[in-house]
Design a protein around this nucleic acid. Structure first.
Length: 878
RNA sequence: GCGGACGUGGUGGAACCGGUAGACACACGGGACUUAAAAUCCCGAGACGGCAACGUCGUGAGGGUUCGAGUCCCUCCGUCCGCACCA
């Protein structure tokens, strides 16, 4: 029987058309908000041009989960859209003389086609492109409402400025102090920028992390570190009048270790601190030093290796616990202006930086904390500071207290002490988190809806005038902001007084776009930014899936932004966390191949041009055309630069989407990287054919659909039924828990079993085989939906398997009458024992002791003790 | 430097709450079918010893807890990731 092979690419197109016609894979419309819901979302892509294997993996996982939940009776929302604003479109515009919008929408068309070819059950009626005025007009409204609430504001801030591209760069775009594109030395510039007040929510964002029990611990930890809460004390130090610059009488520092105050040996301020500036006015050498510190600020590499440097201002400060004691005030390059107060007191024995500094400038080092187990008389600080807890020494009235008690003692004393009528000390919780600067001097982003008027100042664009649209006729010939140099766009009349004014030409950081798209998806056609009823039903996202690279920025911004817009009245205030469960999937990696230039530089060769000889240690890569032996490089993330990419289109055209999906789910746990191999995809392809063969074969051989269940099953048939029902139960739980690789292994197992059984005969076997085939098809349906439809039809149904409810496992088949338990002697496995599941411990013990292998292992000794763990193990101790 | 994760056959990995380590897949070896190949099907396989039954060893290394440890605890080694002058 020369059966035809399953022609995946052709049949997949067929079933996609059928689904489109039935709208079978659809979330319910906006009106249907009945029953339990499940909102499944994968991080939407940037429309860079084509999808890559990373997308295939990400969207397959979400699709399997969404299809499974739908079969389980949930009302599923599974939308898709485009993170469509951003720099690449503008760069492309410069290079190809095409408008960023043209480029972006062309990419969206291509990628949408690719996603459709994957057979994803997405609700395309909800498609969002963030670059569309239909989307960004609502974002502008949200901005205005945040402004109204005081959650958006403008201030002057330092930015990384690329003088060639004439744009602000994000920190990660500055490499070794140079712009990543232009290679120009990046300058620190003071610019007036728009900010979102994320720090207002610092405490809440940190505290609420503990409620996100379906997020990876790793991500929660990263966010907690990023927010960086610390408890400390603000301490005001009086400046010695004789040495202080005019108008300066005190210096406020922030410390988390007031207990070490008696170990203080100097104070230090940042180069931009007002006191440094005041002191520099009359001290050119100091002014020069401050200038040097500022220049150094840009380069990350410099920062890491920079030596601690300082400059004595000549100012002296009075110790808050001893009016007789004055300390020098330095300007130091390692003190940050934007953390705490930009000024510190230094305790060299307790802080490595302070110690390095003290050693360099020969300042006193007094140990004040005695580590546990050390001797007070011999303890010394050498080249390493001790920043742990211990017992206070050399600290007058604090001596003998532990670190915590000393902290409390000093804090309460300083709270009571007064300087110029105000308390010297004030307890203060500090955060590392800074406000979110959202201004970008670029064209392809959401315009900030603000008008600057000479008389009225900063004027919000009235809501009726939204959206503020990007002009279509911008010019991309030169670097810099096309909005700024557009001849007419920025010139408008002030909405308040009517006089000549100009538009804000900055656009928003694209992270703003992605901070609320998941909420907009719940009703993307609403006339207001967010439809509260839709939000109340659909949010939070029940399963969010994306890359770990967004662990902090996107996910923290979204958590903030959703709270902010809720507080501005756009969502119910009890809804705080947008993503109930988060899953971070691993990358798709691939071997890389190269030959070397004479100078050792690698020339990367694409996998399609490589063939292999030998295996194991003698495996060699050979260039198909030239025959030369190539170097086998690292297994790394697929990237254009290493040419180790495999195009999903090629795979889908050759093997079909189901095969690609199956491979992406196989083998590797989803949170880990998966290695793309030709053997792996070929194995998946073989399985696709095998499933088709098995089902095709059984469709003729097994009992017809709807045959009543027979009363008797042969042992083979009974065994097959047990395995299938157990797998049905287990695989369902594994899909639920996103352990796709385990579910895949179980499906291989049942397929093997069905194949074995189909060669046999016996009572009820034909019926059991049909049941097995149907369960198999339903189990693979979320993963390989096209193949499943094909098989379902072959089994005689004219319904869609994607519309079938998840089959129910027969509870009676999930437990066995007999169990096999391992028998150990002194912890070593010696035998196994098959016995009735309900056998008493005594019976099990007796049966175990009678085993010949046990007797032999005991070697005549009497068993001292027998441990029986029901249905698992017997351990004879002798 | 700080924080975190991980380490299991030739390879990717499985192993629920501490209870038969190596499921499933890849690669490999043998066989069937074939003029031949592909495809497919069957068998083998952690290492060492043995014809075999079986025995010994075995989850990065060393120690500990336990009747029993891949799993828990301590020390060390290695790999990867995040943060990095945050006072």
């Amino acid at each position: 029987m020369a059966k035809e092979r399953y022609n995946a690419p052709a049949r997949e197109k067929h079933w996609q058309a059928v689904w489109d016609a039935h709208r079978g894979s659809h979330a319910a419309g906006n009106d249907n908000r009945e029953g339990p819901k499940c909102y499944v979302l994968e991080m939407f892509p940037y429309p860079s041009g084509r999808i890559h294997m990373g997308h295939v993996r990400n969207y397959t996982m979400g699709d399997v989960f969404a299809r499974y939940k739908r079969a389980r009776g949930f009302n599923v929302l599974h939308p898709m859209g485009w993170d469509a604003f951003g720099m690449p479109a503008e760069n492309a515009a410069m290079q190809n003389k095409t408008h960023p919008g043209t480029w972006t929408y062309a990419n969206i068309e291509t990628m949408k086609g690719q996603l459709k070819s994957m057979g994803l059950a997405l609700d395309w009626d909800r498609e969002i492109a963030t670059c569309s005025p239909d989307y960004y007009r609502h974002q502008q409204k949200l901005f205005l409402d945040l402004l109204d609430k005081g959650l958006a504001y403008r201030r002057s801030a330092k930015v990384n400025w690329d003088p060639v591209d004439m744009t602000v760069l994000a920190n990660e775009q500055v490499i070794d102090g140079r712009g990543w594109r232009s290679g120009a030395l990046v300058e620190q510039r003071e610019l007036t920028q728009w900010f979102f007040k994320i720090t207002h929510y610092a405490e809440e964002l940190l505290d609420a992390l503990s409620t996100l029990d379906k997020w990876p611990e790793k991500v929660r930890l990263m966010q907690a570190n990023w927010i960086g809460r610390s408890e400390g004390l603000l301490v005001r130090w009086a400046l010695d009048k004789a040495t202080a610059p005019k108008g300066q009488s005190e210096l406020q520092v922030y410390t988390t270790r007031p207990d070490t105050l008696f170990g203080a040996s100097f104070l230090a301020v940042a180069a931009d601190h007002p006191l440094a500036k005041a002191a520099a006015e009359k001290n050119p050498a100091l002014a020069e030093f401050c200038e040097e510190c500022r220049r150094m600020g840009t380069s990350v590499a410099d920062l890491e290796t920079a030596e601690k440097k300082g400059f004595d201002t000549g100012i002296r400060a009075v110790h808050p616990l001893d009016p007789e004691w004055t300390l020098p005030v330095y300007v130091a390059n390692f003190v940050l202006m934007d953390y705490g107060t930009g000024a510190i007191f230094a305790c060299p024995s307790g802080d490595q930086r302070d110690l390095d500094f003290a050693r360099k400038y020969d300042l006193p080092v007094v140990p004040v904390i005695l580590p546990p187990g050390k001797d007070k008389d011999t303890f010394e600080i050498g080249t390493e500071a001790y920043d742990g807890d211990g017992t206070m020494i050399n600290s007058r009235f604090l001596d003998g207290l532990d670190t915590k008690a000393a902290f409390e003692d000093v804090a309460s004393r300083l709270e009571k002490a007064k300087l110029g009528g105000k308390p010297v000390g004030e307890r203060k919780v500090n955060f590392r988190l800074r406000d979110w600067g959202i201004s970008r001097q670029r064209y392809w982003g959401c315009p900030i809806p603000i008008i600057h008027c000479e008389t009225c100042g900063v004027v919000p664009v009235p809501a009726k005038d939204l959206p503020v649209r990007l002009p279509d006729d911008a010019n991309f010939d030169k670097p810099g902001n096309p909005l700024e140099r557009h001849p007419t766009w920025k010139h408008v009349d002030c909405p308040t007084c009517g006089s000549k004014a100009r538009r804000e030409t900055d656009t928003m950081d694209t992270f703003v776009d992605s901070s609320w798209y998941y909420a907009r998806f719940t009703n993307p056609h609403a006339e207001v930014p967010l439809d509260k009823d839709a939000l109340a039903y659909w949010l939070p996202v029940d399963q969010y899936i994306g890359g770990i690279e967004h662990a902090i920025l996107h996910l923290l911004y979204s958590r903030f932004f959703f709270r902010a817009i809720s507080d501005a009245g756009h969502a119910a205030k009890n809804l705080r966390e947008p993503f109930a469960a988060l899953f971070t999937q691993g990358m798709v990696v691939h071997e890389s191949y190269c030959r070397r230039e004479t100078d050792g530089r690698p020339i990367w060769i694409e996998p399609a041009l490589v063939r292999f000889e030998g295996d194991g240690a003698s495996r060699r890569a050979i260039h198909r055309d030239t025959g030369e032996t190539l170097e086998i490089g690292e297994i790394t993330k697929m990237s254009k630069s290493k040419k180790n990419v495999v195009d999903p289109d090629d795979i889908i055209a050759h093997y079909g989407a189901d095969c690609a999906r199956w491979f992406m789910l196989s083998d590797s746990p989803p949170e880990r990287d998966v290695i793309w191999t030709d053997e792996g995809i070929a194995a998946a392809g073989r399985f696709v054919q095998r499933v088709w063969r098995v089902v095709d074969d059984l469709a003729d051989r097994a009992a017809p659909a709807g045959t009543p269940r027979p009363d008797n099953f042969s042992p083979d048939a009974a065994q097959l039924r047990k395995l299938l029902h157990k797998t049905l139960d287990a695989a369902g739980r594994n899909i639920e828990g996103l352990r796709f690789n385990v579910a895949v292994a179980q499906l291989y197992e049942v397929t093997n079993a069905i194949q074995q059984a189909s060669g046999k005969a016996g009572d009820g076997l034909d019926w059991a085989l049909r049941e097995a085939a149907e369960i198999l098809v339903q189990l693979i349906a979320p993963m390989m939906p096209h193949l499943a439809e094909e098989c379902w039809a072959r089994l005689g149904y004219n319904t869609l398997v994607s519309n079938q409810p998840w089959p129910a496992a027969d509870p009676g088949l999930l437990v066995d009458d007999t169990v096999t338990v391992a028998v150990q002697v002194n912890g070593k496995r010696r035998d196994e024992l098959t016995i009735a599941r309900t056998a008493s411990n005594e019976d099990v013990e007796a049966a175990a002791l009678q085993l010949e292998s046990v007797q032999r292992a005991l070697d005549g000794r009497k068993p001292k003790k027998v441990i029986v763990v029901p249905q698992r193990i017997v351990n004879v101790v002798g």
